[in-house]
Design a protein around this nucleic acid. Sequence first.
DNA 1: GTAGGTGCAAACCTTTTGCAGCATG
DNA 2: CATGCTGCAAAAGGTTTGCACCTAC
Lengths: 153, 153
Amino acid sequence: MPAGVKLDDELGLVQQALRQRGLRWTDQRARIVRTALATHEHYTADELLALCRRDDPRLSRATVYRTLAVLEEAGFVEGLDAGDGKRRFEHVLGHEHHDHMVCLHCGAIVEFRDDELERRQEAAARRHGFRIERHSLRLYGRCRDCQRGKGGA
Amino acid sequence: MPAGVKLDDELGLVQQALRQRGLRWTDQRARIVRTALATHEHYTADELLALCRRDDPRLSRATVYRTLAVLEEAGFVEGLDAGDGKRRFEHVLGHEHHDHMVCLHCGAIVEFRDDELERRQEAAARRHGFRIERHSLRLYGRCRDCQRGKGGA
DNA sequence: GTAGGTGCAAACCTTTTGCAGCATG
DNA sequence: CATGCTGCAAAAGGTTTGCACCTAC
C-alpha cells in the first residue's frame, strides 16, 4: 500500500471529525496535520512549526498551538512532556497505544507496549473506583546504547 | 511516636546529607524542608513559598526554587508534573514509592501502589536493554467521587 | 453573510539567573 | 574569611491571547 494513500485516508478522517464539531478545515490545518502525520514521532510545537514553514513560511506559531489543541481535544494527538519544559506531541492515528522509555543520557525515546501492564493498571483503578480516561507511563533511565561506553549523544 | 520527633529526625537526615555534599544548612533551607515535610503531598513551588512565608515573609521565591532543586538532586523530593504547566513536588522521606491517579474533573490525586506493576515495568525495560532510574505512572480520569452525580469541584 | 480562523505582537506565567550583600562552617 | 546562599529584580522561554483582517461554509 503506497504511503500516500494511507496519509490521505487519515487526513480525511481528521477533516471529517473537525467538521462534525462545527470546526473548519483550512489550508493551515491541513498542512499541520499532514506534516504531523508524516513526521517522526515526538515533536515540539516549535519543531512542527519549523517543518510546516518549509512549505508555508507564513504559518504562525499561534496557529500551530491552536491546531494542536484542537487535535488533542479531538483525540488525534497526544501531548507528553519530556521533563524539559516543552511539551512534545505524537499523533495517535495509525499508531496503537504504547508507553515510553526516556533516556536521560542521550534523549532517546523508546516505545514499548505490555498488555498485562495495561490490564493491571485497569485493575488498580477499579480497586479505587477510578475510571481511566488516559494514562501515561514513562520510564526514565539509561538506554541500551548508553550502557556500553558510558555514552550519551 | 509523636509527630514532632519523626519530623526532627528527618530534618536531621536532610541536614546531614546536604552537609556531606559541601552545602550549607541555612535558616531558609530548614524552614523550607520543615514546611515541605509537614505539608500535604503535592505542592507547587508557589504554594510552598506561600506556606513558608507565613513564618518568614521575606523568604524569596528564588530560594524556594533553588532549595527544591537541591532537595530533588539529593533524592529527598520528587517532581511530578500535573499537566497544567506547573511542576508539583512531593517529599520522599517517610513515604514509600507509589504512583498516581489524577482526577481530571476535580483535581484529586489518589496514590496507589502495585508491586506486580513495578515488576513488569522492570521486565519490559530489561527486554529493551534499558535501565530504569526512575519512573512515572499516572492514570488520568474520573475519581470515585466524580462518578456519582457527575461531580467535579 | 457570519462564525470561526489566521497572523502578528504583546501578554502570561512559571522558572532561572546576575548581582551585591550576607551568613555559614 | 572564603565560599556558598539569599533577595531582588530582570530575563528566559514556552504557551496563550487581543485584535483586525480574512475565509470556509
